[in-house]
Amino acid sequence: MAYHSEFDNEFCQQKRIRVICGIPILPLKTSTKGPAPVQTNNDNDIVDEVLYYFKANVFFRQYDLESAADRLIVYLTLYVTQCLKDMGRITNREGAESSMALLAKSQFPLSGDGGFPLSAFFEKPDNTSDAELIRSYFIQLRHETGIRLAQRVYRKGRADKWWICFTKKKFLNLEL
């Protein structure tokens, strides 16, 4: 059984989290600019959940969505596998962080665009402003995920083999 997000639909309703295209704009512990509200407490956010559950979730070929936040789990898990592939060739943390910053800002498709591998999971944006908001939220998520992943992978100055060993693993048999 795959691990799902603690940010279920009830949580999103209680906290009045904005949902666009079926994606909740959850608060993040970040200094990166973007549409996500800044989380001020030390509780886990969606990026912490993805990194914590990554090693278990990456082995699944199916993933049943239980909440809107699970869409972010799926997307960010695929993004972490893409990041790890890049980190497999990088020898230090500074290089990894700069590579992750470039990867976060690189062009990527959204739901409704050709080449988006998760169209079955995500709704199409209703208009261009929703598409721009989701794109900027994904950039913010990708940037924060890359930074935190680099901190975990390069704790001792070089790449941790227990993270890098997942470079060839495909979550849901998909790639971003």
Rank of each mutant, 00 (worst) to 15 (best):
M1N: 05
M1K: 08
A2D: 08
A2H: 08
H4K: 07
C12P: 07
C12H: 07
Q14P: 02
Q14I: 13
K15W: 11
R18E: 15
V19M: 03
G22T: 09
G22I: 01
P27M: 02
K29N: 12
K29A: 10
K33I: 10
P35A: 04
T40R: 12
I46A: 02
Y52M: 14
F54Y: 15
K55F: 04
N57Q: 07
F59D: 11
F60E: 13
F60L: 04
D64C: 05
L65Q: 11
E66C: 05
S67C: 14
A68P: 00
A68Y: 12
A68M: 10
Y75H: 12
Y75V: 04
L78A: 05
Y79P: 01
T81S: 15
D86M: 15
T91R: 14
E94G: 02
E94R: 13
G95L: 11
A96S: 08
E97C: 11
S98P: 00
S98N: 13
S99I: 01
M100E: 00
L102T: 05
L102V: 07
K105G: 13
Q107C: 03
Q107D: 12
G114A: 09
G115R: 08
G115L: 06
F116A: 08
P117D: 12
P117K: 06
S119A: 14
S119L: 01
F121C: 01
K124E: 13
P125W: 01
N127G: 00
N127A: 00
S129G: 00
D130Q: 15
E132H: 11
L133D: 11
L133W: 08
R135Y: 15
I139V: 15
Q140H: 08
H143V: 03
E144G: 00
T145M: 06
T145K: 01
R148L: 06
A150Y: 06
Q151G: 04
Q151P: 00
R152L: 15
Y154K: 05
R155D: 05
F166C: 03
K168V: 05
K169T: 15
K169E: 13
E175P: 02
L176A: 07
